[in-house]
Design a protein around this nucleic acid. Structure first.
Length: 485
DNA sequence: AGCCTTTGACCAGCG
DNA sequence: TCGCTGGTCAAAGGC
């Protein structure tokens, strides 16, 4: 058992007790960032009105993140704090590396407009934040590095689909877990995850999916705004344990729900009310979990639940933090499943676009799978969480954290790569866009890449100017989310 | 009857 | 060594 200290630190990272709070950071970065940069002129109002002190604050935050050696230095969840500035700090982005958006613009020949997040959530008329340069077709945009096409991606602020970062390399078995309903959550101001593989509730999901789709088109614009408010999730992948931290919009943006939240709780409406389909517990991911404890953790406003895999001889555990309204605010997986997924839940190969069922525990399910398949990815996580992690652990900030299939020698992209796209060199960008999740899977080794891509979107991520979250996709689909604006 | 959740107590690690 | 904190155990209750 990891020392309490480790966990304590972990939690602190999740919810930094000290200022600035995630909400503060986020709003700070939103205010500053989206008004500046290559497309700042689109929202010049913000630019002009931006207080200088915000800029300074942002710089300070960046400095925080710099204190730690680049890739591993950040504590598991403290990333939430330090990462944002680093990622989004306009100054750093534009000055040091020219900014991803700028680089992308150079490559593609056009610039990717930024969404005016300052208006997100407002009731003002919405205009498309994405300006397509003359001569470029939507198709070109979608297929361009800036807007990587992802057939499985859900609507996004930029592409019309939410650009989930896909870690398709992943290979191996796809965790059946899928986040359903996330589509429906668009109305909730968040992007949705698509289920990787079928869930037992596939049929239901399908039905929900259809319903959701109808509203998606109408709410597309709204999504654009809301997506900006998505929360971050930190994925920590140490050797054996994975930590998924999702800052619920709750904590970050008030009413907005993070993707993870929605995933988890099948659906809470915008008011935070639960729909009839509520949290189905942890079985949705295809594995069965038994809750064996719950505790209120210090420095966390949310209770932490402890789950164990019910499979005999399986020691996989997970810790889930939920907000008062049931939204998941953090998930930590520990251990590796030594068994296959229960047949009833096994529906691999189902496009997650079809698995939008109100599966609640997307995070969990993915995590569980990760735990299942990926052998002991996080066993030492707890140990590393606070000390080792910084130097050795791999951290990933994602809206949703999904464990990587076990058979894969998955090394989730380093947090730095995954997150701080803006500071990546071109080469790094490529890495970020194609190899954020480095998964070396043997399981499906006989499967061709093309085949894999059919099953899941290419590992395209970090293709836009801003990364809000990263979606990792293994063979079966995205298992983590993030998006850029 | 079996499984799961809840909940208080116990244990272990750290300062 | 003690107190704090987090993680786990296990009894009780519910479904």
């Amino acid at each position: 058992m990891a020392g309490s200290r480790d966990h304590g630190s972990l939690m602190e990272d999740w919810m930094p007790p000290t200022t600035p709070s995630p909400r503060t950071l986020m709003s700070s970065f939103l205010n500053e960032d989206f008004g500046s940069g290559p497309f700042g002129n689109l929202f010049s109002d913000n630019e002009r009105n931006r207080p200088q002190d915000q800029l300074e604050r942002s710089k300070q935050l960046v400095g925080l993140s710099k204190e730690v050696p680049a890739q591993f230095a950040r504590p598991p969840f403290q990333k939430d704090v330090s990462l944002e500035p680093n990622l989004f700090n306009p100054t750093q982005r534009s000055s040091s590396h020219g900014g991803l958006a700028e680089r992308m613009a150079a490559r593609v020949g056009f610039s990717v407009p930024k969404i005016d997040t300052s208006r997100a959530g407002s009731s003002t008329a919405i205009r498309s934040p994405v300006a397509i340069p003359p001569g470029l077709s939507p198709t070109t945009l979608l297929e361009s590095p800036v807007f990587l096409y992802n057939a499985m991606a859900q609507p996004s602020p930029t592409t019309g689909k939410l650009p989930f970062l896909m870690a398709s390399n992943a290979t191996s078995t796809k965790p059946p877990a899928a986040k359903m309903n996330e589509d429906c959550t668009f109305g909730n101001d968040t992007f949705s995850f698509q289920p990787h593989s079928g869930l037992r509730s596939f049929l239901t999901a399908e039905k929900d999916h259809n319903a959701c789709h109808q509203s998606q088109s109408l709410s597309n614009i709204h999504q654009q705004e809301s997506s900006l408010q998505s929360s971050f999730t930190a994925v920590k992948d140490t050797t054996d344990e994975r930590t998924v931290k999702t800052n619920t919009s709750d904590s970050m943006f008030g009413d907005n729900h993070s993707s993870s939240d929605e995933q988890e709780d099948d659906e809470t409406n915008q008011n935070g009310e639960y729909s009839s389909a509520t949290v189905s517990s942890s079985a949705e991911d295809g594995y069965t979990w038994r809750k064996h404890g719950q505790k209120q953790v210090k420095n966390s406003e949310h209770p932490r639940s402890y789950y164990k895999c019910t499979h005999p001889n399986c020691n996989v555990k997970k810790k889930v933090e939920r907000s008062q309204d049931g939204q998941i605010t953090g998930i930590i997986y520990k251990g590796t499943h030594n068994h296959s997924m229960p047949p009833s839940n096994h529906q691999s190969g189902i496009p997650f676009s079809h698995t939008n069922a109100p599966e609640v525990n997307v995070l969990e399910s993915r995590g569980s799978q990760a735990g299942l398949n990926s052998a002991s990815l996080w066993e030492n996580a707890e140990k590393d969480c606070n000390r080792g992690v910084q130097s050795e652990g791999i951290e990933t900030r994602t809206a949703v954290c999904l464990p990587i299939p076990t058979n894969c020698d998955a090394s989730i992209m380093e947090s730095q790569d995954a997150v701080d796209v803006s500071t990546l060199s071109n080469e790094e960008d490529d890495r970020a866009t194609h190899g954020m999740v480095s998964i070396d899977c043997d399981r499906d080794g006989d499967e061709t890449d093309s085949k894999r891509r059919l099953k899941s979107p290419p590992l395209n991520y970090l293709t836009q100017a801003r990364v809000h979250d990263i979606v990792f996709i293994d063979e079966s689909g995205p298992f983590s989310g993030s998006w850029m604006l």
